[in-house]
Design a protein around this nucleic acid. Structure first.
Lengths: 219, 219
DNA sequence: AACTATTTTTAGATTTGTCTAAATTTTAAT
DNA sequence: ATTAAAATTTAGACAAATCTAAAAATAGTT
């Protein structure tokens, strides 16, 4: 299937928006994600509909078809695998990888991506904690959720942050929380929403604000 | 410097042709290398001349300027580093890498390519034995020469083949010659041009025909 | 030196993805 | 149910890279 760069980027944007909202993607949202005008988005939507990658009814937004979903997921898969590669093998930090992965995700070669997957030991999530679709476009990792949503006794691995404010990241650093650490909820304070967690054999208190901005994946 | 994919490919083609011929590159040769028509090549030549990447006089062909050379060399550098990566890290064979490297060579990130270089331990040549320019566009590896040009007592590393005929490659396989092997010339037969070489602690006879089709880099 | 064949350039058309501006449809509010 | 606001689509234009066909320049041969 011949896909232009632009078509691939639109499909990926539709995929990303619709996994968040679950609904049909509006022309305006899509145009905004693509940093372009609504009229351009309409043009591309028609092209994608013509190729049966999306279902489109005028004024009703778009949804990915089965084939569109598979293509979009494969681009996201490539994007996230390359992110892992950049961090694990090329000493990039997790906030430097996006721009380069945006380029690498369009490289066409099945062998390339399968071998890359193997080189990286078949990772399930990217450096931001987002799940990596398998080659059939399916996501196996559980969804990431804010730490604040866990109940007492549940455990999770830190996989990302919602806020990337400098103060917040520095705070996490100070209390020695980093990506990959496993936490267990010991207690939740009803009155202020703060949580007491166990990690590295220590119990620490985390504010409601911090707990809402720290993503974990349940284990 | 904003470069389109097409501009990069044209510059690379001019680089590759002119390193072979040493002369200005004709419109027809360039068009042929780009698998396009001469009129298209002329159009692009004008654009590249406008940007001062090439010197161009009507009907006289093109030569790279200093800046054009640097850009072209950096693309070739990326292409060849990616080829090494594919072979060394992703189990590609040396005849599978070209198509993928054609895509990867256009990824823009200085950090990416420097880190890749380090990951691969700063290779001087690609899997075909072609030299990898350094980041200043300079080539440090010595030129590859046919084995037949070496004198008695000289040594060289096998870095490539001229003919890729199946029979020839199978013959090399049979006498256990592969890329990377170091050979020493023990004797040259005057009457038929065959050479006796030492490698893997054995002396073997190689025909004049084979010696002319096997590239080595002197050591 | 003249003529022919080849190479190269020009002119005008096409496709892709984008834009602006105007028209249309939907949504929301009274 | 009307109407104003917002969202979406249409129509027409543009730049990039290509093409075909025709014109111009160069090279080769006698």
């Amino acid at each position: 299937m011949l896909m232009t760069l632009s078509e691939e980027n639109y499909l990926k944007a539709i995929y990303n928006i619709s996994t968040k909202t679950g609904e049909a993607v509006s022309t305006n949202l899509l145009a905004e994600a693509m940093e372009t005008k609504a009229s351009s988005a309409t043009d591309m939507i028609k092209k994608l509909a013509e190729k049966d990658f999306v279902n489109y009814k005028k004024y009703q937004g778009v949804k990915l078809t089965k084939e569109g979903h598979l293509i979009a997921a494969s681009i996201v898969r490539k994007h996230r695998l390359w992110e892992v590669f950049l961090v694990e093998k090329l000493n990039f930090s997790w906030d430097e990888v996006h721009e380069v992965a945006e380029q690498l995700e369009h490289i066409k070669s099945d062998k390339l991506i399968e071998e890359l997957d193997a080189l990286l030991d078949f990772p399930r999530v990217d450096p931001h904690g987002d799940p990596i679709p398998n080659k059939y476009g399916e996501i196996q990792a559980k969804k990431k959720v804010p730490l604040s949503s866990l109940k007492v006794g549940e455990k999770g691995v830190c996989v990302g942050v919602k806020s990337t404010a400098k103060e917040f990241l520095q705070y996490l650093d100070k209390i020695e929380i980093s990506l990959g650490i496993e936490l267990e909820i010991i207690e939740k304070e009803a009155f202020d929403g703060s949580v007491i967690v166990l990690y590295k054999d220590q119990q620490k208190n985390i504010s409601a604000m911090a707990a809402a901005n720290l993503y974990v994946r349940k284990t």
